[in-house]
């Protein structure tokens, strides 16, 4: 099979999994309810928005050129967001005829389903034995990646992808109410997807504009979060995640203003300090700042993606400052083009 054929075969398998009426589609949904911590609606939202089942031919070509080639590739998967193994497999298949995958014990569902839907396309293994000339794709925590890389034989090409976070930047000067609503809708969608547990999920929101504009935008975000929250109930949060939200709420109550809704939390402050990321679980901290680029530059090493709304001048400045982050429209942060790894920091 050519690289194109391998990737297309995988995408076709993903399409079958995404179909909630197919046998495999029904089975994975039941398992995802157990493994993801998301609500049934949250799972469906993620499948609809973030499982890449119809990439363009141009994207597939770009994906193929973005990866190194080898006869054999190994993939070490971690408990990532539950759709992530699709792209991880596509990257390996784009560059290698033979792909061996070790699945995550905590999140094996999609990989197993793709294996079932397209038998023979890749192999599932419990032992990783790379040799000179192989490519080794690894996903996981930084410490795991360091250990894995340190123990690889000479001549194995290592491609590691660690955790990350997304940010949003909005320039609201002169934005219309309709524009604010659209941007709020996008931001809320990006936030609700995976309950902010993805490496593309917005955990920092910086906004420029007048106080009136920023307040109006915050109101729009609260309205959109409430609205989407009714359709997509929040999933389960661990006790530690709940505790982080309590601390976030108390801190932001002191620092600014907090809108607590059943669907999640929106906070508004004038602090430019990015001393901590917003916790996961539908928490949005809108920080009204005068100068947004410098604070983002300080945390540039963790940023994989920036959802952006504003002038071309500010966009250029942002792209120059964060060349390895994907800059996208809000609402598109969790569905980057199928053109290579979602996280470009290793580039």
């Amino acid at each position: 099979m050519t690289p194109q054929e391998r990737v297309r075969a995988l995408v076709a398998a993903a399409r079958e999994v995404a179909d909630k009426d197919s046998p495999v589609g029904k089975r994975v949904r039941a398992r995802w309810l157990e493994t993801t911590g998301l609500s049934r609606e949250g799972i469906e939202l993620a499948v609809e928005n973030s499982l890449e089942i119809s990439p363009s031919e141009a994207e597939i070509e770009q994906l193929i050129t973005s990866v190194p080639t080898s006869k054999r590739a190994w993939v070490l998967l971690s408990a990532n967001v539950f759709v992530a193994s699709h792209r991880a497999l596509a990257l390996a298949l784009a560059g290698s005829e033979r792909v061996l995958v070790r699945v995550s014990r905590r999140d094996p569902v999609l990989t197993a389903a793709l294996f079932e839907a397209c038998p023979g396309l890749f192999e599932i293994t419990s032992e990783l034995m790379p040799a000179r000339g192989d490519v080794f794709w690894a996903y996981g925590k930084k410490d795991t990646l360091r250990t894995v890389q340190a123990n690889l034989p000479v001549g194995v090409q290592f491609l590691g992808h660690g955790p990350g976070a997304g940010a949003a930047l909005l320039e609201l000067s002169d934005a219309t109410v309709e524009e604010m609503q659209t941007q709020a809708q996008g931001l809320v969608l990006d936030t609700v997807l995976f309950e902010q547990r993805g490496c593309l999920s917005p955990r920092v929101v910086l906004v420029t504009g007048s106080t009136k504009e920023v307040n109006r935008f915050a109101e729009c975000v609260v309205a959109e979060l409430t609205s989407l929250g009714k359709r997509v109930p929040r999933g389960e949060l661990s006790l530690d995640e709940q505790a982080d939200l309590v601390r976030f709420c108390d801190t932001l109550t002191y620092v600014g203003k907090v809108f607590e809704t059943e669907a999640g939390i929106v906070a508004l402050s004038q602090s430019a300090s990015l001393s901590a990321l917003t916790p996961v679980g539908r928490a949005i901290h809108i920080q009204h700042v005068e100068e947004p680029i410098l604070p983002l530059a300080r945390i540039g090493h963790v940023l994989t993606s920036v959802g952006f709304f504003g002038s071309e001048t500010l966009r250029s400045q942002l792209v120059r400052t964060l060349p390895k982050a994907r800059v996208t429209a809000l609402g598109e942060m969790q569905r980057p083009p199928f053109d290579g790894p979602v996280d470009l920091r290793q580039r």
Partner: peptide, 8 residues
């Protein structure tokens, strides 16, 4: 909270 998924 221990990071789940690929979040930080």
């Amino acid at each position: 909270a221990v990071a789940r998924g690929c979040s930080l």
